[in-house]
Write a protein that binds this DNA or RNA. Sequence first.
DNA 1: TTGATATCATTTGCATACGAATGAATTCCC
DNA 2: GGGAATTCATTCGTATGCAAATGATATCAA
Lengths: 153, 153
Amino acid sequence: MSAEDNLLKLVEVEEPEEHDYLLQEQVGFILRKAHQRHVSIFAAHIGDLTPPQFAALAKLRDVGETSQNQLGTLIAMDAATVKGVIDRLKARGLVELSKHEADKRRLLVNLTAEGRDAIERLIPLAREITQETLAPLSAKEIATFMKLLAKLA
Amino acid sequence: MSAEDNLLKLVEVEEPEEHDYLLQEQVGFILRKAHQRHVSIFAAHIGDLTPPQFAALAKLRDVGETSQNQLGTLIAMDAATVKGVIDRLKARGLVELSKHEADKRRLLVNLTAEGRDAIERLIPLAREITQETLAPLSAKEIATFMKLLAKLA
DNA sequence: TTGATATCATTTGCATACGAATGAATTCCC
DNA sequence: GGGAATTCATTCGTATGCAAATGATATCAA
């Protein structure tokens, strides 16, 4: 290889052509597809609840009664989004709402008995969903991936 | 109350009942948060276009004129979703639609001159978005992460 | 105490995202 | 050739997801 070739190669590596932008290699695009695949796996295992609805129930199981806003923070949903999710869970009798005695602004959310039964019943399925989502990776790869993904989230 | 009871209560308070299922460690939940963070970074750099709209333009730049359905396949959107995205890009004059001569079912989509200008102008910003999204990782970690993420998508 | 500020919840508007149903056009295959 | 199956696009309904505006309440600070 000539000196000119080496120089050219170096220049190419350090200053890539403006035309070689490949959508399918961008992290955002792949992230969106990976998320889509997960949601699809979720729906195949748990047909009557969405991932956000499941997240709300699972978090209420962890922390018990909380305000709607606080629950939203815990499951990474803004106030407008969490309201819709809770409304639908309430309509199905899985959560119940009550007013905070001291702070009249707050709307408390809690599992109903039916909601508690539902989440306990669904958690084994959720484990399968996690497993199937990660199935393309080896155990070692899963550990690495989860560590790096957590850094990005 | 016995001393044992007090001890037990203390333990319960400081180490709340160990639930064997932790939402915040599930891949689906973290994937959703990572995707949210990316969309937020995208919006901070490119305010007047959404990631799916950008994806449509970038892919049209790659492949040139295609049918609406085919474009949807290329950017991982179902027919109903891609229609809305293309409708909005058309309303803004960034793409133009035409009928396929041989196959009357197909609706061809292509960039307008304005659309081509827009995507060329935005690609440098998209590179910054990718960089900022991956900023929490080292170069080596990025390589590892992208390889594993691609396996999951 | 009171006026400014902050927090909680709601509502509206817009943009994905997808299942299901529908209609039009094409292809398959007997 | 012609009926069955497939493909392409559209529409409808439901569910996130978020920005921005609003109203009610609570907290802070002068």
